[in-house]
Simulated assay, not measured.
Amino acid sequence: MYKMIVCDLDETLMNDDGSLSAKNAAAIKEATAKGIYFVPNSGRSYTSFQNDLETMGLRDRAGQYSISYNGGLILENKNNRPLAVNAMPFEIAKTIFETGAANPEAATHVYTEDALYIYNPISEDSDYLQNRGVKFTEMQTADFEQFQGQNIMKVIMALPSVEKRKQMREVVESQVDPKQLTVTFSSGRYVEFNPAGINKGTAAVQLGQLLDIKPEEIIAAGDNSNDLSMLKAVGMPVSVANGIDAVKDVARYVTSADNNHDALAEVIAKFIL
């Protein structure tokens, strides 16, 4: 019997326009009414999906949980209470940021525990974020010292092609020991850097341990490479129909529907209801 669903948001639960469908929201409510935990497990900040939690009936709920920043932060939804903060060492974050900032094609994002800052925002990326309710502050300088004393959850870059994202990874890994990093790609636009050992999968298992839920009792749903860790860590890995091949290869179930056609409602109907 499955006791928890951990679910990516963008291109998995959410429509391409960033909206949550009524059918997915209704299915989530049915699942949680049966005692199943539904846990958003996103690369985004928890601040960006509070309205969606409201629609799911999970906002500010005691005993309900969210995971943000690719596993960097685990929260109880009631008062957004941190349960685990897996921050990046300052000097590593600084080196990654400065590498991104030196590339004029890159929009370089810095995620603190509660806010997003972007150096050199580009319109396509900014539009994508705004469609998803993601608020950010534009950095006017590349002075990273402003983040001293804050929890840096991750640093990511938006770049226009797969090749350029892979090149950015190579450049960063020439400056920072790769053993200190978890590197993933997401949403067909980002290369993402988290601390070593921090990913969606470790966070899902960590939350499961807190709730006395075994990995085999967890369903994970995703579409892209930053979801692979959670699919590999759980009992029922699911890819939505629009998932990349690497995600479909590790999935035990691939939905008939894509993210624009209520894929999560399909998952909940099959495994929970």
Results as ranks from 00 to 15, higher is better:
Asp223Glu: 09
Phe147Pro: 05
Ser187Phe: 15
Leu207Ile: 14
Lys232Cys: 09
Gln180Trp: 00
Ala241Tyr: 01
Ile244Lys: 04
Gln148Trp: 03
Glu192Ala: 11
Val254Phe: 00
Ile244Gln: 11
Val247Asp: 00
Leu228Ala: 00
Val176Thr: 11
Ser239Trp: 03
Ser161Tyr: 08
Ser239Ile: 00
Asn151Glu: 14
Met168Asp: 04
Asn199Ile: 05
Ile198Val: 15
Asp212Pro: 10
Gly188Phe: 10
Glu145Lys: 13
Gly197Val: 12
Ile213Met: 11
Val250Ala: 06
Asp212Cys: 08
Thr255Glu: 05
Tyr253Ile: 06
Ala204Thr: 13
Ala203Trp: 04
Gln206Ile: 11
Ser256Phe: 02
Met157Ser: 11
Met157Asp: 09
Val155Lys: 03
Ser187Val: 13
Ser187Trp: 14
Gln209Thr: 13
Glu145Ile: 01
Thr182Glu: 10
Val238Phe: 02
Val205Gly: 06
Thr184Cys: 08
Lys200Leu: 12
Val250His: 02
Ser229His: 09
Val250Ile: 01
Asp227Lys: 05
Asp177Tyr: 01
Val183Arg: 05
Gly197Tyr: 04
Gln167Leu: 15
Ala221Phe: 05
Gln175Ala: 15
Thr202Val: 15
Ile198Trp: 03
Gly188Met: 08
Met153Asn: 08
Phe144Val: 08
Met236Gln: 14
Arg169Gly: 08
Gly235Met: 03
Glu163Thr: 13
Asp223Gly: 03
Pro178Tyr: 04
Ala203Cys: 12
Ile156Gly: 14
Gly243Ile: 02
Glu173Lys: 04
Ser187Pro: 08
Ala246Phe: 00
Met230His: 06
Ala221Asn: 04
Lys214Val: 12
Val250Gln: 07
Ile156Ser: 15
Ala257Phe: 11
Gly222Trp: 10
Gln148Pro: 00
Ala257Asn: 15
Glu217Trp: 06
Ala220Thr: 10
Glu217Met: 04
Leu231Ile: 07
Val247Gly: 02
Ser174Ile: 00
Gly201Trp: 04
Ser225Glu: 13
Leu159Glu: 05
Gly235Gln: 03
Gly149Gln: 08
Ala246Gln: 04
Ile218Asn: 10
Leu211Arg: 02
Ile244Glu: 10
Thr182Lys: 02
Lys154Ser: 09
Asn194Ala: 14
Ala203Tyr: 01
Gly243Ser: 05
Lys154Asp: 04
Asn242Lys: 06
Pro195Gln: 13
Val254Gln: 12
Asp245Leu: 05
Leu159Cys: 12
Met157Ala: 13
Tyr190Phe: 15
Leu210Glu: 14
Val155Asp: 02
Gln148Thr: 06
Glu216Val: 10
Lys248Thr: 12
Ile152Asp: 02
Ile219Arg: 06
Thr184His: 01
Ser186Ile: 12
Gln150Phe: 06
Asn151Met: 14
Val171Pro: 04
Asp249Gly: 03
Thr182Cys: 07
Phe144Leu: 06
Thr202Asp: 15
Ser256Val: 13
Lys179Trp: 01
Lys200Trp: 02
Glu173Val: 04
Pro195His: 00
Ala251Lys: 01
Val234Thr: 05
Gly201Ser: 06
Arg252Asp: 14
Ser187Arg: 05
Leu211Thr: 01
Glu163Val: 13
Lys248Asn: 09
Pro195Ile: 12
Ser229Ala: 15
Ala220Phe: 07
Asn226Ala: 07
Ile218Cys: 11
Thr255Gln: 06
Ile219Ala: 05
Asp212Gln: 13
Gly235His: 09
Glu217Thr: 05
Ala220Leu: 06
Gly243Met: 02
Val247Ala: 01
Arg165Lys: 12
Val171Phe: 12
Glu217His: 01
Ile213Lys: 09
Glu216Ala: 11
